Simulated assay, not measured.
Amino acid sequence: MSIHDTRTHRHRTVEVAVPGGTLTVAVWDPVDDLVDAPTALLVHGITASHLAWSFVVSQLPGVRLVAPDLRGRGRSEHVDGRAGMAVHADDLALVLDALDIDRVPVIAHSMGAFVAVVLAHRHADRVSRLVLIDGGLPLDLPRDADPDALVSGLLGPTAARLSMRFADDEEYLEFWRGHPAFCGHWSEELERYLRYDLVDDGHGALRPVTSYRVMIEDTLDSNMGEAVPAALAALRHPTTLLTAPRGYRDEPPGLYAPGYLSRLLAHYPGIAHTAVLGVNHYTIIMAPAGARVVGSVAQAITRMSER
């Protein structure tokens, strides 16, 4: 039994060939072994891994859940080549091919939501519905921002940690215990997610696995590239946006300030919006209260996709 099993699902991983290497893809199968179980695709954020979804998985009994480590993250760290939203979207299409999945609802968080929008554009027949969680629509950023300043301003210590080294797991956990986003939200699931983030740096220490280069490429492409605006302009899939009122460091407002969000939703009237109260950018999926709301929406759209 995998340590990442839940009461509702069994966890396994498969390797899927993509240009430049292989992606590690998690599959959470329902414990009831339902042959006709519906399937949903989960897409994580910019410095995350598939284990960010552990909290949501338990809210989706009876649903088979496919969650890749995107290239440059988790156990897909060593995939060669450039990144960007179109590359990730094409990788996801190959994941669906490898698992013989024809069409699927996509539930995606943060940068993963931008990837999901582009997936729906480039591979429209593979996507039934979208749930975008605190991402996927343009952020309120200056178009001419310096790349390093943009990353620092958006992600702050979350990005800075990628260049840090840690003596052991416990030192890394202590780093995160001091993060305001997780104050009052510490859990065994969170610890497992964080431990998975660490790899040997080759010099006797541990480092976060996410590639800084890939993170920079993805940050610039998701906020300043052409793939996302083109995908949003052509968006035809039923789409739900869930937003958090607080940001990366539990600060108000969230990534989408109320006035700016109102203008965005007016520009994209086909997108249904729900504000998830009492959560920040992380805890909207990585703590029980947020996961319950996300799970409820995901369960509903997954059942709709079966019709």
Rank of each mutant, 00 (worst) to 15 (best):
V117P: 03
V117K: 01
V118L: 05
L119A: 13
A124L: 09
A124M: 10
A124Q: 12
D125Q: 13
R126Y: 09
V127S: 12
V127I: 13
V127G: 04
V127M: 07
S128I: 05
L132Y: 03
P138W: 12
D140H: 09
P142M: 14
R143P: 00
D144E: 14
A145T: 05
D148C: 01
L150E: 09
S152T: 10
T158A: 14
A159R: 12
A159V: 00
A160G: 07
R161S: 11
R161E: 05
A167C: 05
D168L: 08
D169Y: 10
E171H: 06
L173D: 02
H179W: 07
P180V: 06
C183A: 15
G184S: 06
H185A: 15
W186H: 08
W186L: 08
W186E: 11
E188T: 14
E188D: 15
E191C: 09
Y193P: 01
L194W: 07
L194N: 04
D200M: 02
D200V: 01
D201I: 00
H203A: 12
H203C: 12
G204D: 02
G204W: 00
R207N: 07
V209A: 10
T210N: 05
S211R: 15
E217N: 08
D218F: 04
D218S: 04
N223S: 14
E226M: 05
A227G: 09
V228N: 03
P229A: 04
A231I: 00
L232A: 01
A233S: 12
A233D: 07
A234T: 10
L235M: 11
R236I: 11
